[in-house]
Structure formats: structure tokens, C-alpha cells
């Protein structure tokens, strides 16, 4: 699971949960990979993602907790190629292989196994 993917996931499908967003990440195995850098793609993608959730997510992983991102996503940030590279790395090159996602409201845990978060619910949760 990339941090990009994490940005879209929520546990609001649980019937008692209102937002379920963002999910907390508890990783036991993280892997870093190389992905081609496309600054225009990152710029456009950022318009669709929740910036504060990205900033929060990186503090929860050892691999990214020392990376500093600005609090606000200004136009200046979006034009800064070094910054875009950092964002590219955070979003696309860091993958949680094993661990879990945790619902912020109920504490329900969703296991991440071989890189795949299991968001299936039990009958009584739907």
C-alpha cells in the first residue's frame, strides 16, 4: 500500500462510523521502490489528494518520518521541483508491505498483507 492509496481509504463503510478518515497506519514492513518522476502528474494528482493526510501519514512510518513537508500546499510548493520530488517519493515510492490500518473512530484493524489492505467487513459491521 502506497501513501497515495492510503489517502483514498476510509472505514466509513462500517455502519457505526461517520468519517473513518484518515486511517492510522501501523507498519511492520515497509519497502522503497523506484518510480519514474513525472512532475506534471504529481502536480495534477495533488489537486485531488488531501494534503494534511499525506503529512500525517508520513509521520507514522519510520521510512518517511524524517521527511519534512510544508504544512500548507501553496503554489510555490507545487512549482518547486525538489519539493515535488520529495512528494513523488512519499506518495509513490514508499510501500507498506505488512502491517495494519486502524479506524480512527472504532479502533477496528484492517490487516495489510503482502502489500494489500484487507478492507472486507463482517456482516454485522455493514
Amino acid at each position: 500500500m502506497k501513501i497515495l492509496t492510503h489517502n483514498m481509504l476510509t472505514s466509513n463503510i462500517i455502519k457505526s462510523v461517520k468519517d473513518g478518515y484518515p486511517l492510522k497506519i501501523a507498519a511492520t514492513e515497509v519497502q522503497e521502490v523506484d518510480v519514474d518522476f513525472n512532475p506534471e502528474f504529481i502536480q495534477r494528482l495533488l489537486a485531488k489528494l488531501n494534503w494534511s493526510v499525506i503529512c500525517e501519514a508520513i509521520t507514522q512510518l519510520d521510512a518517511t518520518k524524517d521527511i519534512e513537508l510544508p504544512e500548507n500546499l501553496t503554489d510555490e510548493v507545487k512549482e518547486d521541483e525538489d519539493m515535488l520530488r520529495k512528494i513523488h517519493h512519499v506518495l509513490l515510492e514508499v510501500e507498506v508491505i505488512e502491517g495494519k490500518l486502524i479506524c480512527p473512530e472504532t479502533g477496528r484493524e484492517f490487516p495489510i498483507n503482502k502489500g494489500i489492505p484487507n478492507m472486507l467487513l463482517n456482516d454485522e459491521e455493514v
Binding site: 500500500m1 502506497k2 497515495l4 492509496t5 489492505p117 478492507m119
Partner: peptide
């Protein structure tokens, strides 16, 4: 890798 999730 990293873009898949299991759900109904």
C-alpha cells in the same frame, strides 16, 4: 504494487 485493496 501498492495500489490495490481487498473489498466488496
Amino acid at each position: 504494487p501498492g495500489v490495490n485493496c481487498r473489498a466488496d
